[in-house]
Amino acid sequence: MTFAGLPYNTLVVAVGVAAVGFAAGVVGSLCVLRKRSLVGDAAAHATLVGVAGAFLATGRRDLATLLVGALAAAVAGLAALLLVRRFTRTRDDAATAIVIGVSFGLGIALVSGLPAWGYADSAGLEQFLLGHTAALTAADAVLLTGVACVATIVVSLLFKEATLVAFDAAFAAATGWPVLVIDAVIVGLVAVMVVAGLPAVGAVLVTALVVIPPVAARAWTDRMGTMLLLAGMMGLVAAVVGVVVSAAWPGLATGPLVVLAAAAIFGISFVAAPERGWIARRLRSVTRNA
């Protein structure tokens, strides 16, 4: 069974990854607007430990098990970030870099050690590094779609609260909103989307999925709601392009292709968007000077 020349499995996987791309764009918009663009990167690099840990603990390699482990590790990485911030005078940027470097190192050490420690069937875990959609099944795709839908619904429910906190956290706190809780939900959603993006984009690059589409979408609109939708659409397109191209080019990991597709969208947006695009700005400054 094929559709538009694509095998059935590729098609189903493309739908699942597209849903993840959409939700990641939506969730990432909140994160970028809250000025926490690279929080997702810390969570992403920590996921590898969870993937290896989940395999070690259960001996299973199905996607759900590994992603649950990845999510636990992502949350642990973010908790480590909070601990560093609370108990040391290390600044936030260095703290983020520490979590990224050390957690990824631990993940690499675990993934490399597994075969040597007698886990012969651990091959495939390293596909979570750069993404590899060819190995996904239709059931995996359904799982990813479900996660993406839930994340999108949570954002639409909390749209008002998240906007308020992202725009003016002090005012939000002064008017009685639990800023920490709302922040935790935003960051938690980012962690979930980073984990959901792992199979397609991989730990090293998945942060692009929550950063690039929002930044590109911002160029086209001045309204929050529109920006979220647009970022979602851009994430979706990037994900689909990445999956389809990698299906046609088997030697290549999916992640870089998704990122390059997103980067192309960003480039077009940055240059050509009306009002905020580079050309529009240049034209404005030229007409002003004339």
Binding site: L205, V211, I212, V215, P256
Partner: peptide, 9 residues
């Protein structure tokens, strides 16, 4: 976030 992921990709 935009630049390094793109270049790395």
């Amino acid at each position: 976030g935009v630049v390094f992921t793109t270049l790395f990709a």
